[in-house]
């Protein structure tokens, strides 16, 4: 570096320790001879230090405690409260866990395979061409709910062949940004389901199933906040009957439910 006055860029590089030893020495000499330059470097140093000082501590969302009995009891109580409110609000008939249909294990297998594949590779959004091609094959009246208010993004779409189903089903995969993976399976024959919302459990997994006309619906997730999943099931149950976009109150409820929920991240 020449003996001319250091440039603004060089003063910044000096503060950042990015100059070579000889260039840094030249700047140091210039600072010794120029009080204003020294003040500028002091200002830059303070600016850098203050920016670093502003780094806030950050903690990841806690792991989901799955094995503590008291936690399960608390979750069960909150789920019960949500379900009672939802039932009163919607007058929708509710049925607890019941004997699962024969094809349910196959549906869980479809969900598990997708979930493991998604975890092994970066999530990607579904290409619109894939959506159109799939819908063309499955039928024009197919309902693909937008769950973005629940911070769940449509990330997977395919035709799945399930054992004991007697036909193809449409598998829709949604990903959250805190580790949640939710499957919605559309069963063209109705799957022998009733119009009522029915829950099927599989360990930490929860399945909700219902039917509207000739089409059956199955919502699957594992390790997801139970109150949040229950609200999603209630919402989709209602939406598939009405075939309308979510109203503002529902969208708010989905957002707030997500905010309150325990992340799936573990």
């Amino acid at each position: 570096m020449s003996t001319t006055r250091p440039s603004w860029q060089q003063l910044n590089a000096y503060v950042d320790g990015e100059l070579s030893a000889s260039d840094a020495a030249a700047v140091a000499r210039a600072l010794a001879d120029d009080k204003i330059l020294a003040e500028v470097v002091a200002t830059l140093s303070r600016l850098k230090a203050t920016t670093q000082e502003g780094i806030e501590p950050f903690a990841l969302a806690p792991k989901r405690p799955r094995t503590r009995p008291w936690r399960r009891a608390a979750i069960a109580a909150s789920v019960a409260a949500v379900l009672i409110v939802a039932a009163v609000a919607t007058l929708a008939p509710w049925m607890g866990p019941t004997e699962p249909p024969a094809w349910l294990a196959g549906a869980w297998q479809v969900h598990d395979t997708w979930a493991q594949t998604e975890m092994a590779s970066p999530p990607a959004s579904v290409d619109s061409g894939v959506v159109l091609a799939t819908l063309h094959r499955f039928g024009p009246q197919t309902y693909l709910p937008d769950l973005s208010d629940a911070r769940l993004t449509l990330s997977h779409l395919d035709i799945a062949t399930m054992a004991d189903m007697g036909g193809d089903a449409l598998h829709i995969g949604y990903l959250g940004n805190r580790g949640c993976q939710v499957s919605l399976v559309l069963l063209p024959g109705g799957g022998g389901l009733s119009a009522d919302l029915v829950r099927y459990d599989r360990g930490a997994g929860r399945g909700y199933a219902w039917r509207n006309g000739k089409r059956g619906y199955l919502l699957l997730a594992e390790g997801m906040d139970e109150a949040r999943l229950a609200l999603l099931a209630e919402t989709l149950h209602r939406a598939t009957l009405e075939l309308r976009p979510f109203d503002p109150d529902t969208r708010t409820a989905l957002r707030e439910s997500r905010e309150r929920s325990v992340p799936c991240l573990s």
């Binding site: 440039s7 603004w8 860029q9 003063l11 204003i36 330059l37 003040e39 500028v40 002091a42 200002t43 303070r46 600016l47 203050t50 920016t51 000082e53 502003g54």
Partner: peptide, 18 residues
């Protein structure tokens, strides 16, 4: 430009930087 600018140190704080 690449001119040297000079600020008032007393105004630099975590809040003002943010």
């Amino acid at each position: 430009s690449d001119e040297i600018w000079r600020g008032d140190d007393r105004l630099i704080s975590v809040l003002t930087v943010r």
